[in-house]
Amino acid sequence: MQKSVVILAAVSIAGAALAEGALTLPEEGSISRADGQAAFERIYEVVTHPRCANCHVGEDNIPMWSGPSYGEARPHGMHINAGESRIGAEFLPCQTCHVTSDDFDTAPHAAPRFGIAWQLAPVEFEWFGKSRAEICAQLKDPERNGGRDWRGLVEHLEHDASLNGPVAWGWSPGGDRDPAPRTLEEHVEDMALWGAAGQPCPTD
C-alpha cells in the first residue's frame, strides 16, 4: 500500500495544527491511476461535506447552513450575504459573529470560528452542489485553484491547518457539528496521492 511512503505528523487534538512540510510527498508518477482515483473519491467526499462545501458557494455569495438539527442544507439564516468580498465587507462582516479564535469549541448552533478571519472561499472554488467531474476539473485548474499545482494544494492544506484555519476546523468543528469524513491527515495524504497519480478525474 502506497500509504507507507507517507509520513504524517501526529495530529489528533482539536485545533492543533498540522506542521507544515510534515509530509514527505510521494514521487510524481509513483501512484497508480486507480489509487489516484480512489484518493479523489475520498477528496470529493470531504470537499462536498457540509463542513467544507457550505462556505465554498457560488456567486450569490450566500453561505449554507447544515449544523446539528437543520437537516438538509439551507441558505444561512438572517439574510446573510458575504458579498463579492466574500468576507461580508459590503454588508455585515462575517467576523461580526464568526470571531477569530484558536478555540473551536462553541455551543451547538453558535457561530463557528477558527484561527483566521472567517470568510467564504473564493467564488471560483465553488463546491456546493457540484459534481465529481466539475470539482475535479476545478481542483486541478490553476486558473481556479489559486494558481497551484498538486504540491501547491498539499502545501495549501498544511499551511491553512497550521494557522488553525478552516482546513483544521473542518475536522474539529465543535458545537456537535459533524466533522468532515476521516481525518485531516488522511485528506492531506489523499491530496498527495491524487497529485502523484497525475490528478486523475473520474471517468464519468
Partner: peptide, 8 residues
C-alpha cells in the same frame, strides 16, 4: 436558530 420568527 430554529425559531426565527420574522427578520427585518
Amino acid at each position: 436558530h430554529a425559531y426565527e420568527g420574522m427578520r427585518l
